[in-house]
Design a protein around this nucleic acid. Structure first.
Lengths: 142, 142
DNA sequence: CTAGGATCTAGAGTTCGCTCTAGGTCAAGT
DNA sequence: ACTTGACCTAGAGCGAACTCTAGATCCTAG
């Protein structure tokens, strides 16, 4: 990496990552960023590509359901420096499995929803969209 | 259906559906159940197979990310009785698509996480788990 | 008939993950 | 120099989805 890499303001990072500036400041306060974000002499944050990359990774982890506490644990490992890479890997692998499980569960649920939709479609097409196939309407109609 | 179908207490429904009794009462209060749940003379709820089925469907919708407000909308359509089946179908199909999108997004994110894991594994195996591949360690080590 | 576990209502409390506010300071264009 | 929009800190507030509490009633087994 270049010694003088690109410097971003918090607003630019907000655009790059999709997180609000509030959320970015909050991420730092919560310890999700493994270094102290450097400041200008006036106290304003200076982000570089590395931190933006880290934040992007954080959002990927968040979007896949890792709780803030999990990301914080990961950040703490990184902050602790070299030597705990297998711990970091274990954390990632556990999350990887959690995501796979989540996808499998969603696919399962999806098929239930699809079946329900198909039942509705069939009955609507047949003009018989009442009765046995609707457990609640059923009650009303008996 | 049988005129005298099986009757369940709220505790039994809790076991059957995995929702807490608190959550079940809250679901009713929030209007997620399209009928008034009948009561004993003493005021205790009596659930039957139809309601249990409905609640199970609700949990499937919830687990796939439908907000309570969405389920409420669906319940209101069902409560309104026959005639709006295509609205119900539209609601289900919209959610179906949302779930497909969610799965696609998760798969995308998963591949990012997998790549990150693989990088860690490769570097740990090579005994070079420091430096260039870790954006934060990178900073510390330059 | 009585004990005690299950249930009732209505509303307060909790957790998560931000979002917003107040009361300033900073910095870039004119 | 001045204006104006971005940024600062610390903490309060918020929406979603429950969860828990209090104080009372129900109901089933012994």
């Amino acid at each position: 990496m270049d010694e003088q890499s690109i410097r971003y303001t918090i607003g630019e990072v907000s655009h790059l990552t999709g997180l609000s500036v509030h959320a970015l400041r909050w991420f730092e306060r919560e310890g999700l960023i493994p270094i102290e974000v450097p400041r200008t002499s006036g106290g304003q944050r200076i982000f570089d590509a590395d931190i933006v990359y880290w934040i992007t990774l954080c959002t990927t982890l968040r979007e896949t359901g890792m709780p803030i506490s999990g990301i914080k644990a990961f950040a703490e490992l990184v902050a602790a420096g070299p030597g705990n890479e297998s711990d970091r890997l274990a954390l990632l692998e556990a999350h990887e499995q959690a995501v796979r499980d989540r996808i499998a569960h969603l696919e399962n649920s999806l098929s239930i929803i699809v079946t329900k939709s198909e039942t509705y479609r069939a009955h609507i097409a047949a003009g018989t969209a009442r009765g046995v196939w609707d457990p609640i309407a059923l009650r009303a109609e008996q």
